[in-house]
Amino acid sequence: MPQTSLLTDPLQVAARTAWGEARGEGAVGMQAVLCAARNRLARPAWWGRDICSVFLHPWQFSCWNMGDPNRALLLAVTGADPQFQIALALAAKLVGGSLIDITSGADSYYDTRLAHTPAWAASRLYRCTIGHHAFYRVGPSGEG
């Protein structure tokens, strides 16, 4: 699939994001990443209004950042990778509207292995931790 198609096909963008962000977290971790986007889609804002714009918005999902080593990997991964097969199946649920939210409404997350907690991660907005990712609801109506 040409790289331009990878960046415009919602299924591919979602699957590659889940794989790029959380392939080491297994199916549950990848589902949680997709849930954050699902919750952003439910409340469109500055981060985007459709699957591709939400995932590809600059500096939102680090695997898409130009300097991130995961970017080259996610652009090259194929269906032969077992974790990518799982990501594709989960992304199909997101695209089809049947992905179950396992993050209690979170729209953002960070890797808990970071040296410092991000400034935006206020404790009142915390929802859950899944694998190495702490999930928060910080967008519009973040208290909800």
Score class of each variant (00 low, 15 high):
Pro58Ile: 05
Ala121Asp: 10
Ala80Phe: 01
Glu21Asn: 15
Ala22Asp: 04
Asp107Val: 10
Cys52Lys: 04
Pro140Asp: 06
Leu99Pro: 01
Gln3Asn: 04
Ser62Lys: 12
Gly144Glu: 11
Leu11Asp: 03
Ile102Arg: 09
Ala106Asp: 01
Ala36Arg: 03
Ala80Thr: 10
Gly20Glu: 07
Asp111Gly: 04
Leu74Glu: 01
Tyr109Leu: 06
Asp50Ile: 09
Glu143Met: 11
Asp50Ser: 13
Thr103Lys: 09
Lys93Ile: 02
His133Asn: 12
Leu74Ile: 05
Val28Cys: 15
Met1Thr: 06
Val33Ser: 01
Trp120Tyr: 08
Ala115Gly: 11
Cys52Met: 11
Cys63His: 00
Ala119Glu: 09
Gln60Phe: 06
Phe84Gln: 04
Thr8Gln: 11
Val77Cys: 13
Ala36Leu: 05
Trp64Asp: 01
Arg23Val: 09
Leu6Glu: 05
His57Asn: 15
Ala115Met: 14
Gly96Met: 06
Gly29Trp: 07
Ala80His: 14
Leu34Val: 11
Ala27Leu: 12
Arg40Ala: 01
Gln31Asp: 00
Thr103Pro: 03
Arg23Lys: 02
Asp101Cys: 04
Arg124Trp: 14
Ala80Glu: 10
Leu41Cys: 08
Ser53Gly: 07
Pro10Lys: 09
Pro2His: 03
Val95Asp: 09
Ala80Val: 05
Glu143Lys: 14
Arg49His: 13
Phe84Ser: 08
Gly20Ile: 02
Thr129Phe: 04
Ala22Ile: 08
Arg49Glu: 10
Ala42Glu: 02
Ala76Gly: 14
Pro69Thr: 14
Tyr110Glu: 02
Gln83Asp: 01
Val95Phe: 08
Ala72Arg: 13
Ser98Trp: 03
Gly96Leu: 05
Glu25Cys: 08
Glu21Pro: 13
Ala72Phe: 02
Tyr126Glu: 00
Ala121Met: 11
Thr103Arg: 02
Gly20Lys: 12
Glu21Ser: 11
Cys52Ala: 08
Ala92Thr: 03
Gly67Gln: 07
Ala27Ile: 05
Ala92Ile: 01
Asp68Val: 10
Gln60Glu: 12
Ser62Phe: 11
Thr117Asp: 01
Gln12Leu: 08
Ala22Thr: 09
Ile130Gln: 00
